[in-house]
Simulated scan of single mutants.
Amino acid sequence: MRGFETERQEWAGSRRERLFDTEQYLDLRRQRAVLTRTAIALAVGGVCFGVWALGWKDEPEPYRPPARQAPAGPQASAGDGAPGEETAPDAGEGTSGLPADFEVHDDQEGFRTALPAGWRRESQSSQYGIDVVDFRSADGTHRLQVFQLMEDSPYASVADAARAGRELDGYQEIHLEYVADPSGGEAAEHEYTAAELTGEAATGSGYHVVDRRFEATDGERYALIAYGPTADGTEDERELLDTARAWFCPPGAECPSPDGATP
Rank of each mutant, 00 (worst) to 15 (best):
R68Y: 08
D90M: 02
T113A: 13
A244D: 06
E17G: 09
P60T: 11
F135E: 03
E10T: 14
L240T: 10
G252Y: 11
R30M: 12
A72S: 12
H175Q: 08
D21L: 14
R213P: 03
R112K: 10
A53H: 11
G13V: 04
A244S: 07
R238M: 06
H175T: 14
R37Q: 08
C255M: 08
I174P: 00
D218N: 06
D27W: 04
S205Y: 13
E122I: 12
G260N: 02
E109I: 02
P251K: 13
R121T: 09
F49M: 07
D58F: 15
T230M: 12
G140N: 13
P74H: 08
A78V: 10
A253Y: 02
A72K: 04
G3P: 02
P60F: 13
R15M: 01
L28F: 07
T198D: 13
T198K: 13
P263F: 05
V44D: 00
T141G: 02
A67M: 06
A246D: 07
Q9P: 04
F20N: 00
F135R: 12
A195S: 08
R29Q: 03
H175L: 12
F4N: 09
A43G: 12
D21V: 15
S126K: 00
Y207L: 05
R143G: 03
G45Q: 06
H208D: 01
Y128K: 00
P99S: 10
T95V: 09
R221F: 08
S126Y: 00
A244Q: 06
A161M: 12
T217N: 02
R68I: 08
P60V: 11
H142I: 01
A161D: 08
A43E: 01
R32K: 06
A12T: 11
V133Q: 04
S257H: 09
T230P: 01
E254M: 13
P62N: 11
Q108H: 14
T198N: 11
E177Y: 14
G46I: 05
Q24I: 15
R136F: 14
L241D: 08
A91F: 05
